[in-house]
Amino acid sequence: MILRARAVWTITLLFAVISFLAGIGTAEAKIVVPLSGSIIEVDEATVNAVVTTFEQAERAIKAHDLEKVIGVYSPQYNYHGLKKDDLRKIWKDLFDEYQEIASTHLFTKIAKVGSGRDVALEVTCTGHLWAKSTTSGLYVPIDSWHEEVHYLVLEEGTWRIRGNVGESPRVLPFGTAPHPLF
C-alpha cells in the first residue's frame, strides 16, 4: 500500500513537472511552489524570501553577473567537497560558453530546522538548468535534479544556499552526479 501511494505521488509529481516545463519558453526561468501537494512548514514571508533568493539568482544569471550569482551562496558553502570558489569557476565557464541561461525550480517542501541563530531551511526542489550554446546555437540541458534538498541559511537577513542535505559520500554511486548550482 505504501509503495502504491508513493507511485501515485511520483506519477502526480512527474505530471506536474512535465506540465510545468511544457509552459516554459526559451530561456524563461520559472520558480513555483505548488498550492496543492506541497508540504510547507514555514510562514508565507519565509516562502516569499526563499523565492526571492532564487529570483535574484535568475536575474543575475540572465545578466551574466558573476558576483551577484555567487552572492546567493553562503561563504560556508560545501557540497560534495565543492566550495564557493569552485562555484565561481563553474559559473564563469558557463557564462563563457552559454547564452540565455535559465532554470526551473519546483519547490515541493520547505521545512525549518534548528532555531535562533542556528535556523536553516531544507527546500526540496525538482528542476533543471538549460541554455543556448554559443558553439552550436542550440538550447541544451546543463543540469537537472529530482527532489534535491537545498540547505539554506539566514545570513545578514538573506537566505543563502549552503549546500544540499545529506551525507557527502567519498565516491558518488555510478550514474549520479552532484548538482552544485541549485
Rank of each mutant, 00 (worst) to 15 (best):
V50D: 06
V51W: 03
T52D: 13
T52R: 13
T53C: 08
T53K: 09
T53A: 15
T53D: 00
T53N: 07
F54Q: 08
F54K: 07
F54M: 10
E55R: 15
E55K: 15
Q56E: 14
A57Q: 14
E58L: 01
R59M: 10
R59I: 09
R59W: 07
R59E: 14
R59K: 13
A60S: 14
A60T: 02
I61Q: 02
I61A: 11
K62N: 10
K62T: 12
A63S: 14
A63T: 04
A63N: 15
H64A: 14
D65S: 12
D65Q: 08
L66K: 02
L66F: 03
L66T: 00
K68W: 01
I70Q: 00
G71I: 01
G71W: 03
V72H: 09
Y73R: 01
Y73L: 01
Y73K: 00
Y73E: 02
S74K: 06
S74P: 12
P75C: 04
P75N: 10
Q76T: 14
Q76F: 12
Q76L: 11
Y77F: 15
N78F: 13
N78T: 09
Y79N: 11
H80F: 12
G81F: 08
G81C: 09
L82Y: 13
L82C: 02
L82I: 06
K84Q: 15
K84G: 05
K84P: 08
K84C: 05
D85E: 15
D85H: 11
D85R: 12
R88H: 08
K89I: 11
I90P: 01
I90H: 02
W91C: 00
K92E: 13
K92R: 14
D96M: 00
E97I: 04
E97T: 13
Y98D: 02
Y98V: 03
Q99E: 15
Q99T: 10
Q99H: 11
Q99F: 08
Q99D: 15
E100L: 12
E100K: 13
E100M: 11
I101M: 14
S103C: 08
S103D: 10
T104M: 04
T104E: 06
H105F: 11
H105I: 07
H105A: 15
L106F: 15
L106M: 14
F107K: 00
F107S: 04
T108M: 07
T108G: 02
T108C: 00
A111Y: 03
K112H: 06
V113Y: 13
V113R: 14
G114N: 07
R117H: 08
D118V: 05
V119E: 15
V119W: 00
V119K: 12
A120F: 00
L121N: 04
L121T: 04
E122H: 13
V123N: 03
V123T: 04
T124H: 07
T124Y: 06
C125N: 15
